[in-house]
């Protein structure tokens, strides 16, 4: 690895829609998946990331560069993560959780999961079905029974047209 010679090494990452990205190795190895490839010597040419699209990969690389520029200060890293995720919509967050899982980046995975959970707080069942693209497979009777069992959890829920 070039770190020993002092020259920063750059890796080329390829998204599943064939976009190419250059990123400093020191930032890219935040991903355990990429680090393993580098350590195994399979990072010579282009690293194909078959499960991540260009838009999401661009975001992840912004995160990699941003977080690796911060010295070991958990407080500052946390506030960077909060700021980084603050303007992301639900679909982007869902794509990022898949990417973070595939790239094996636990810090991003935790931050995105926590952010999604925060967005889902007090949301209606209808909202969740819509955002997750879930078909309601309950019969009306079954659904009424499940709701009845946990009736109190529907108090204080954000109003939603098709709850």
């Amino acid at each position: 690895m070039a770190a020993e010679t002092g020259t920063p090494t750059t890796l080329t990452l390829k998204s599943n829609d064939d976009e190419l990205f250059s990123v400093a190795e020191s930032a890219a190895i935040l991903s355990v998946t990429i680090r393993n490839m580098v350590e195994d010597g399979c990072a010579g040419g282009v690293i194909p990331l078959d499960n991540v699209d260009g838009k999401t990969l661009a975001s992840v690389i912004t995160y990699m560069n941003g977080i690796s520029a911060i010295p070991a200060d958990e407080e500052k890293k946390k506030s960077y993560r909060d700021k980084f995720l603050s303007d992301k919509d639900f679909e982007t967050l869902a794509d990022m959780v898949l990417a973070a899982n595939y790239l094996n980046m636990s810090c991003l995975m935790d931050a995105v999961s926590a952010k999604i959970a925060q967005v889902m707080e007090k949301k209606s069942v209808g909202w969740v079905r819509r955002k997750f693209g879930i078909e309601n497979d309950y019969t009306p009777e079954e659904e009424a029974a499940v709701k009845e069992e946990h009736k109190w959890t529907f108090e204080g829920v954000e109003t939603d047209d098709d709850n």
Binding site: V97, N101, M109, S113, A114, I116, A117, M120, E121, K122, K123, V125, V128, R129, F132, I134, E135, N136, D137, Y138, E143, V146, K147, E149, H150, T153, F154, V157
Partner: peptide
């Protein structure tokens, strides 16, 4: 993993999402 970050109240409500 995502759901494990939710509160108990949200989780009980989301049992109604689907089977």
């Amino acid at each position: 993993e995502l759901l494990s970050w939710l509160s108990v109240k949200d989780l009980l409500r989301f049992k109604s999402v689907c089977k």
